[in-house]
C-alpha cells in the first residue's frame, strides 16, 4: 500500500539540467509518530531558464522509512523503501516540523 522505492541521490553533487541545477545537501531522518520520515534537503538554482533566474533551498519528503538503504540499483546507488504519507494531518505535522527546522524553503509535495 503506497510503498515505493526511493533511489538516494548522492549529496553535494550537482545535478545539471539545461535550465539550471540542483544539489542534495543532506538527508534527514525525522522521528514522527514513532516512525522515521525521510527528508531530502537541497538547493536549486535556475541559471539558464528561458524565463529568468533564481534559486531556493528545498526539501522533498519521500515518506516513512520501511527499509533504509537495504538495496542498491543498477548504478550502485542505495535504494530505500518508503511509505508515502497520505494523511493530510500527518503531512501538515511534518510540514510544520520542517518549517520550524529550516526557514524559507520550498516543500515539494509530500
Amino acid at each position: 500500500m503506497s510503498i515505493r522505492e526511493y533511489v538516494h541521490i548522492e549529496p553535494e553533487q550537482e545535478n545539471r539540467a539545461i535550465a539550471g541545477y540542483y544539489e542534495v545537501e543532506e538527508e534527514l531522518l525525522i522521528p514522527v509518530n514513532n516512525q522515521e520520515v525521510l527528508c531530502i534537503l537541497g538547493y536549486v538554482c535556475w541559471d539558464n531558464s528561458c524565463c529568468g533566474s533564481g534559486g531556493c533551498r528545498y526539501v522533498s519528503v519521500p515518506g516513512y522509512i520501511v527499509d533504509y538503504k537495504k538495496a542498491i540499483d543498477k548504478k550502485g546507488r542505495p535504494v530505500s523503501r518508503v511509505r508515502k504519507i497520505t494523511k493530510s494531518e500527518e503531512q501538515k505535522e511534518i510540514k510544520d516540523i520542517l518549517r520550524k527546522k529550516i526557514r524559507n524553503l520550498q516543500i515539494i509535495d509530500i
Binding site: 535556475w46 531558464s49 524565463c51 529568468g52 533564481g54 531556493c56 520550498q106
Partner: peptide, 10 residues
C-alpha cells in the same frame, strides 16, 4: 511560480 521572483515567492 518560483521563477517569478517578487517580494514573497512563490
Amino acid at each position: 511560480d518560483f521563477l517569478a521572483g517578487g517580494i514573497d515567492p512563490p
